[in-house]
Amino acid sequence: MKSKKYLLSFLYYMVAAFGISLTIKAAVGVSSFNSMNVAISELTKIEVGTITTLVNLLFLIACFFIEKNKKIPEYLFMIVSLVCFGSVINLFLYHLLFKVQVGSYFLSIIVFIVGTIIAGYGTGRSLYYGIL
């Protein structure tokens, strides 16, 4: 039963990554965290998903040193999830949606709203399982 919770949490986390990819692709504004990742990506020419992974790993390392009751298997699962999260963002932004052009501002807003809903849903469902 616990493995099912891990799998579902992971899958919903990947859904959230897809939603974030859409919000970035819409190019009308993103969350402050994602805007930082996009800005660093543009400055360094490193893909956004890779930057997202690196920044999230820094937070995870900080949590590891702060937390008193470290559960190593959970941290390992989170590391794998973070790497996959960034990889999913890169997959959609730089490969599957690369040639997709959002032609109008209205369409950009629609893509942004849909992406935000998908990201929020995926994040909410992932948090529901209390693993990631």
Rank of each mutant, 00 (worst) to 15 (best):
I46Y: 08
K99L: 10
F98A: 15
G19S: 05
A27R: 05
M36F: 12
Y12P: 03
I24C: 03
L91N: 06
K4T: 15
Y121T: 06
F59N: 11
K68V: 06
L60T: 02
L54A: 10
I118R: 05
C63H: 12
G86K: 02
S108A: 14
H95K: 10
C63P: 08
A16F: 04
N34K: 08
G86S: 04
E67K: 09
I40D: 09
L82P: 00
I110Y: 09
K4D: 12
F33W: 14
Y13W: 07
L96R: 05
G120M: 01
V102I: 13
K45S: 14
K4Q: 13
T53M: 15
Y129S: 02
G115Q: 00
L82V: 00
L132T: 13
M1C: 14
A27D: 08
K5Y: 11
K68T: 08
G19Q: 01
G124S: 11
G103A: 15
N37L: 05
K4I: 14
A26W: 00
I131A: 05
L58S: 13
Y121E: 07
L132F: 11
Y128T: 05
I40W: 05
Y129W: 02
V80A: 10
L107R: 04
F85N: 02
Y105P: 13
A119H: 07
F18H: 08
K45R: 10
I109V: 12
I51V: 09
F112S: 14
L132Q: 14
G29L: 02
V38T: 15
F77G: 03
E74R: 15
A26K: 01
P73K: 01
I117V: 04
F59M: 12
V80K: 11
A26F: 04
P73S: 02
N34S: 13
T23G: 02
V15W: 02
L96Y: 04
F59W: 12
V28Q: 06
S21N: 07
F18W: 06
Y121L: 05
L93R: 00
G122H: 02
S21L: 07
E67N: 12
Y75Q: 03
C84I: 02
L76Y: 13
M1W: 06
I117D: 02
Y105L: 15
T23H: 03
I51H: 04
H95C: 11
L22Q: 04
Y6Q: 07
S104M: 09
S9L: 02
F92S: 03
I66F: 13
L43D: 12
S9R: 06
G124K: 08
I79E: 00
L97A: 08
S3L: 15
G122N: 04
V28I: 06
L96F: 04
I89W: 03
L82T: 00
I24L: 07
I72T: 10
L76C: 08
L97Q: 12
A16V: 01
F112L: 11
Y129V: 00
V102W: 04
A39E: 13
K2C: 08
N56Y: 03
L96H: 04
I109E: 05
E42F: 15
F77I: 03
F59S: 11
S35Y: 12
C84D: 02
L93H: 00
K4R: 11
I109L: 11
I110V: 11
I117Y: 05
I72Y: 08
F10P: 00
H95Y: 07
S41R: 06
